[in-house]
Design a protein around this nucleic acid. Structure first.
Lengths: 111, 111
DNA sequence: TTGAATAGTTTAAGTTAATGAACCATTGCT
DNA sequence: AGCAATGGTTCATTAACTTAAACTATTCAA
């Protein structure tokens, strides 16, 4: 693994994590994520419940949940008309970890 | 360390890493970072050199460098009229690492 | 099959961000 | 002082994002 290989890794990491970075860089979506992580409910939260625990309107919550979902940060499960949103360890947060660790490797080993 | 402590950690991580997330989530700034990391020049690159290696205008490069610098992702060194930009291991990328690792801990230990 | 509950979508307005042109500031050299 | 090199800043335009209101779709129960 030379420097060029490491750079190519990082280039891919950037592509894989771009949506995640933009999704969780937004203050509003960070607040939604905090609500999702704070709940004791193991089965996830519905849009209405998240709306209650934030200062946002339901369409706004729905909008931001879609962005988080498209980025692969959160997952959704349908039950009738109810949609439950939750964070999972298997989500795209792992791609962010790769990005951080690969840059760290570059800076410590190839500089 | 209980779940609430871990949540408070993550809340702080979000605050500390927000600027970094927004800064490096942008495709244009990712391209600039790749140029900075790819160079063999140990002393950093000047605005003009970065402009040459991208499809961007000089004001655009200057603008994005400022955002990266405000976020603590890159550093600058002045030499006369020349400004050299570079990435350093001691930059705010560490705050991103904390964020990722703390969320990982929450999901594995407290769920 | 009608009505209530839930939530996604569309639209229009307001806000913010990115861009290039033109301009300004600083440094170093003669 | 005068000039060239470098690069930051301002401004106006365009593009993108965020939001709430109104609307639509789906499911479930009576």
């Amino acid at each position: 693994m030379n420097k060029q290989d490491q750079l190519n890794l990082i280039k891919d990491d950037f592509i894989n994590s771009q949506k995640v970075l933009l999704a969780i860089g937004d203050e509003t979506r960070q607040a939604i994520l905090m609500v999702l992580m704070s709940t004791d409910c193991q089965t996830g939260l519905r849009v209405g419940e998240i709306t209650e625990q934030t200062h946002l309107s339901r369409p706004a919550v729905s909008h931001h949940l879609k962005i988080l979902r498209d980025a692969g940060v959160i997952l959704m499960r349908k039950e009738g008309t109810k949609n439950f949103y939750y964070i999972d360890i298997r989500t795209k947060l792992g791609s962010l970890k790769n990005l951080v660790l690969d840059i760290e490797t570059l800076l410590t080993k190839f500089y």
